[in-house]
Write a protein that binds this DNA or RNA. Structure first.
Length: 528
RNA sequence: GCGCCCAUAGCUCAACGGAUAGAGCGUAUCCCUCCGAAGGAUAAAAUCGAGGUUCAAUUCCUCGUGGGCGCACCA
């Protein structure tokens, strides 16, 4: 149990309240306390007195039966209750970190098997920045959930058949002049390049745009995989092909299940799902009047496969262009009896050139590719940049500016702290063992601050796993390494009087920093 | 036209309805005889506008302004 959790437990025990209050790390300008709670406001409401009074009474009663984790409690003028954590419990926590090592902060609080689907970009061209954002986010989210106890599968659903593949094939034929071009077609340079490289194949299949499209899609997918796995450190446990979903007759099976729900009907020669019963703004077609499955039905087949493979929890990370899709796929998840289905929409990345926003279109070929970004600024910089921001935030992005500023990226600030810690440990030689440590000497202002930060790592993990806001970890890391840099300036370690306990603190810092990097999907640096 | 998302410091972004709204970059001034200065300390600097709910609003509601996205028998 973390220190914060101990305080929470005590509050619940004393007041009988389960919700309606929180324990937080207060703003340093307001107080130098380590934790604060607003519980007095809740108490005041139910007991009809001022928060200040309620807080004072609570504090008195707390003092009569204190807990080890807290050695001082105070009340602010406006009614917040502040807690100062005891050095002893902080010292104990540092010991815990060293003992647990890379397991520190992990738990079994999240149960069950969950499939996290992300990127899932159509293989009709290179990855966009938005795809990359989803990739980084999905990776970090998966890592956090796994660390919190879930059995996680990372999936990329490949839309390698259907209409857009046909369109891709036609676009290629058009690029070589075999058929007339159209506005619908993919216009990017990459289409022409691919067509040029595969002229002979295209010519042989000039009557079969689908074959051309599929071949191109396979090639593009290889390119995508290369960027993802090799260049970006994004790993998938599974690439599920839409073709295979179709081949296994899963859309048909899904349709039968949907029919059983009574939400399927026919109109105008097509077959519809009554998604309006699931707060969609209109019903959706499953089978066209030509009796062809729509993308939606095939995806329902895909969801069915996931369910059959033993997942009753699914998280789907989508870009903002799929907003309109959310209700209907949630309807399917509901009918297929997923216990839990979440859709996370990562908001748009607005591309700027100076003051001007650039219209992005894969079809028109006017976009910055994810690979460009990774090549230009480096994968760690890109990752940190995107993961410092909530999924629901729009990002203004200027590639030129990003290039210019990449060396100033905060990721280096964080990495440098870890490198500093490792250098000290290397110089010290002997590794620090948990049991033999006498940590009671730790407690200078800088040390205390660092200890508090480190001890809150499990709380941050738990919160991120709960609300999927993984950027908390990035923000946490920035704060924690700041405390470390400060400690480094203030306290010489090697050759100092309290060398051993300080080395323990440095060891604990390295563990927590490295772990945070790992959760974010960033390979912790050895050198800079 | 309808729906959703966003608007916070010069820039890019934080802030379960809670205290004097934070961080990085940029700007100004200090700090290397010392484990790497890719560092530390200090300072100036912000909630789009108008109402409302609340003990308390950047956060919730209404209207407006400005951006983005979605509204297919495409995917």
């Amino acid at each position: 149990m973390t220190i914060k959790e101990e305080i929470e437990r005590k509050l619940k025990e004393m007041t009988g309240l389960e919700t309606g209050f929180s324990v937080e790390v207060p703003d340093k300008k307001a107080t130098d306390a380590d934790y604060a709670t607003n519980i007095a406001f809740a108490l005041a409401r139910s007991e009809k007195r001022s928060p200040r009074e309620a807080a004072n009474e609570f504090a008195d009663s707390f003092r009569r039966s204190p807990i080890d984790a807290v050695d001082r409690i105070g009340v602010s003028e406006n009614g917040f209750i502040n807690f100062w954590v005891s050095k002893k419990s902080l010292q104990r926590e540092i010991g815990e970190i060293i003992k647990a090592g890379m397991k520190y902060g992990s738990s079994r609080s999240v149960k069950g098997r969950v499939q996290v689907e992300f990127i899932s970009a159509n293989p009709t061209g290179p990855l966009t920045l938005a795809n990359g954002r989803g990739g980084f986010y999905g990776t970090a989210l998966s890592n956090v959930l796994a660390f919190a106890g879930a059995d996680v599968e990372r999936e990329y659903y490949v839309n390698d058949s259907g209409n857009q593949v046909l369109t891709l094939g036609r676009s290629i034929l058009a690029a070589l002049g075999f058929i007339e071009s159209s506005e619908e077609f993919y216009q990017g340079e990459y289409v022409k390049e691919w067509a040029g490289r595969n002229r002979a194949f295209v010519e042989r299949h000039r009557e079969d745009p689908e074959a051309v499209g599929e071949r191109a899609a396979d090639d593009f997918l290889e390119g995508i995989k290369h960027v993802i796995e090799k260049k970006s450190g994004i790993h998938f446990d599974r690439y599920t092909s839409e073709r295979s979903v179709r081949k296994k007759k899963l859309p048909e099976k899904a349709l039968r299940l949907l029919r059983k729900s009574g939400k399927v009907y026919e109109r105008d020669g097509a077959v519809w799902l009554k998604t309006t019963d699931f707060s969609d703004d209109k019903d959706r077609v499953l089978l066209t009047k030509d009796n062809l499955p729509t993308y939606f039905l095939v995806d329902a087949g895909h969801y069915l496969e996931t369910k059959k493979r033993g997942f009753d929890w699914k998280i789907n990370v989508l870009g903002p262009d799929h907003y309109g899709y959310v209700r209907r796929i949630q309807a399917v998840a509901d009918i297929l009896k997923f216990k839990r289905s979440d859709v996370v929409i990562t908001q748009a990345i607005l591309i700027k050139k100076g003051e001007e926003f650039v219209k992005m279109s894969k079809r028109k070929g006017t976009f910055v590719t994810f690979e460009d970004l990774v090549d230009e600024v480096g994968v760690d910089v890109a990752k940190f940049f995107f993961l410092a921001v909530g999924a629901n935030s729009h990002i203004d992005f200027d590639l030129d500016l990003a290039k210019e500023r990449s060396s100033k990226n905060p990721v280096f600030y964080a990495e440098y702290a870890l490198v500093r810690a490792k250098k000290i440990l290397a110089k010290a030689g002997v590794p620090v063992k948990a049991k033999t440590q006498d940590l009671s000497a730790l407690g200078s202002v800088a040390e205390r601050e660092l200890m508090v930060r480190l001890a809150s790592f499990p709380d941050v993990v738990a919160e991120s796993a709960r609300d999927y806001e993984v950027h908390r970890l990035t923000r946490y890391l920035m704060g924690a390494v700041k405390s470390f840099h400060n400690f480094y300036e203030e306290e010489k370690v090697i050759g100092s009087e309290r060398e051993r306990p300080k080395l323990a603190l440095v060891t604990a810092s390295a563990i927590v920093f490295e772990n945070t990097f790992r959760l974010l999907g960033i390979v912790p640096p050895e050198e800079m």
